[in-house]
Amino acid sequence: MTWKFSNEIKAILFDKDGTLVDFDRTWAATNRKAALIAADGDAALADILLNECGMDPATGKTRADSMFAAANANEIAAHMVEHGSPVEPEKLARLLDQAFVEGADTPWPICDLDALMRTLADAGLSIGIASSDGEASIRRTVEVLGLSSHINFIAGYDSGHGPKPQPGMLRAFASHMGITPGEVAMVGDNRHDMQMARAAGAGAAIGVLSGTGSEETLTDLADVLIGSVSDLPGLLVRA
């Protein structure tokens, strides 16, 4: 692997699902619950909604850049209503947010995240999280994983910075840290993450193959692809 962080990079902004936590292990059961809520208990309709939102009802696998992989609760709710949910969209979005907060109690970390964060901090890098999940769910995940002391910034779709792939969350992180977007590396598993990085003028866009994305979906937008965040220390160049 020849690509390395430039010395201009001062901070890393992580996506959460598929990047820091295993997407399918963390969310398959919750997404089934969400679909059943949206279907008002109709199991057949729930399977239809699961498929329409990107999750195979039989395997629990989620497709790259699908609604479950990349969208927020408002977008998922609207999509479910469009495909047959009888629940009013705003009410459904609230119910989905609640389900996602509850699902945050059982995250599956991609690797030893505490050790990873310590390594990055020792290299002088500040750390943030930007997710299409709601902020409350992100904070719960961080708390459960014992990472609160490592994280300098958290933003969800409802934090007031705009949703992905708009540049607001990355720009807000940079502003919070007193640096420029060009001094931030974005790390994520789907195109929305890479598109946000490009739109914000990030210093680097790093794609991980541990989530719903693939070489095919990420190569054209990422500066480099790695297997997972556990490979990040190998990209560090520090005196």
Rank of each mutant, 00 (worst) to 15 (best):
M1V: 15
T2E: 12
F5I: 01
L13R: 03
D15G: 04
D15H: 04
K16Y: 04
G18P: 11
V21T: 14
F23P: 07
D24P: 08
R25S: 14
W27S: 08
T30W: 13
N31T: 05
N31A: 05
K33N: 06
K33P: 03
A34D: 11
A39V: 05
D40T: 02
D40H: 02
A43S: 11
A43H: 09
D47S: 02
D47V: 00
L49F: 02
L49Y: 00
L50T: 04
E52I: 06
D56Y: 07
D56F: 09
P57R: 00
A58C: 00
A58R: 04
T59R: 01
T59N: 01
R63T: 08
S66T: 10
M67D: 12
F68C: 01
A71F: 13
E75M: 14
A78H: 13
H79E: 14
H79S: 11
V81L: 11
E82H: 14
E82W: 14
G84A: 04
V87M: 13
E90N: 12
E90K: 13
E90H: 14
R94V: 14
L95H: 07
L96A: 06
G103C: 05
G103P: 09
A104G: 07
A104K: 13
D105T: 13
D105Q: 10
T106I: 01
W108E: 09
D114R: 14
M117R: 06
R118W: 06
A121V: 03
D122F: 02
A123T: 00
G124L: 03
S126I: 05
G128S: 00
A130Q: 05
S132F: 12
G134D: 06
S137G: 13
I138W: 00
T141H: 07
T141V: 15
L145A: 04
G146S: 12
L147E: 07
S148R: 14
S149M: 05
F153I: 00
F153S: 03
I154Y: 07
A155M: 07
D158P: 05
G160A: 09
H161W: 12
P163S: 12
P163Y: 12
K164R: 14
P165G: 06
P165C: 08
P167C: 01
P167Y: 08
G168D: 06
M169D: 02
R171Q: 15
A174S: 10
S175W: 03
G178P: 05
I179W: 07
T180M: 15
E183P: 09
V184H: 08
A185W: 01
M186V: 14
G188W: 01
G188P: 02
N190F: 03
R198M: 10
G201L: 10
G203P: 08
A204Y: 04
A205R: 04
V208W: 00
S214V: 12
E215L: 00
E216G: 11
T217L: 12
D220S: 13
D220Y: 13
S230L: 10
S230Y: 06
L232D: 03
P233E: 07
L235E: 00
L235T: 04
V237K: 13
V237C: 10
R238E: 15
A239R: 15
